[in-house]
């Protein structure tokens, strides 16, 4: 059984949900793991701000409670991306993707900056709207093929999934934070706390990389 991500190294079975570790998904999984460990291990930086027109500058400090909350959210985000990159079930993938969307909002939710809050809010609206396409897409895949299992879908013996449905899933994932909708997210990166903010960008990247493999196989 060869998939777009290579021949599986091993399969982890939970009942009918099969988690497949192909070379591709394994590398993505390891990356998510490494960055999650980094989030746990590192403390936020103190961002410098320059007052325009003068030579005054100040550092932004992150309070302990804010740091704890954001660290928790970033770790949750890391776990959700790990789930999304290895899962062998289309609906689980969509669910994890939606979860990443929430966590991304959560990572910057505690930042006390109006710009960041505004960007996070707009991003959240887009992410929430995108879940319609995500869940709709996966439900339509189940309707046309009768299964949600990615390894079974990859065998190519089932009825073909319409292009529109594939587009649904891809646009849904893009809504969770890829290129055209990224504009809302870029403003979120103003927030101090590099290790956590990186998780926002890493998670959507990993999910985008996974959705390509998923859609190629459908």
């Amino acid at each position: 059984m060869t998939t777009a991500g290579g021949t599986p190294l091993f399969l982890l079975e939970f009942g009918d949900i099969v988690i497949s570790f192909t070379p591709y998904t394994t590398s993505l999984f390891i990356l998510a793991l490494v960055f999650t460990l980094l989030v746990i291990a590192s403390r936020p930086e103190r961002q410098l701000d320059i007052a325009f027109g003068t030579d005054a500058y100040m550092t932004k400090e992150i309070s302990l409670s804010e740091m704890r909350f954001r660290r928790f959210m970033a770790i949750a985000c890391g776990l959700a991306s790990m789930g999304a990159v290895v899962t062998g079930d289309l609906f689980d993938f969509c669910l994890f993707t939606a979860l990443v969307g929430i966590c991304n909002v959560g990572i910057v939710a505690a930042v006390k900056s109006r710009h960041v809050q505004n960007a996070a809010y707009q991003y959240g609206l887009v992410a929430l709207a995108a879940t319609v396409l995500l869940f709709g897409g996966s439900a339509m895949v189940a309707a046309t093929t009768g299964t949600l299992s990615l390894p079974i879908l990859a065998t190519g013996t089932l009825p073909a999934v319409p292009l529109a449905v594939k587009a649904f899933i891809v646009i849904g994932v893009m809504g969770e934070g890829m290129a055209p909708f990224y504009a809302a997210k870029a403003e979120m990166f103003r927030a101090p706390g590099a290790p956590y903010v990186i998780m926002c960008s890493l998670s959507s990247l990993l999910i985008f990389l996974r959705v390509i493999e998923v859609v190629v196989q459908l």
């Binding site: 979860l99 969307g101 909002v105 809050q117 809010y121 959240g124 609206l125 992410a127 929430l128 879940t131």
Partner: peptide
């Protein structure tokens, strides 16, 4: 039956996002 099993997680995720967003709205 599958649909019935899938609706609940979908609903929960939607509600969670809605909660998160309304919280941000309050702060914002």
């Amino acid at each position: 039956d599958l649909a019935e099993a899938l609706i609940l997680p979908g609903l929960v995720v939607g509600i969670a996002e809605l909660f998160a967003l309304s919280q941000i709205y309050l702060v914002k």
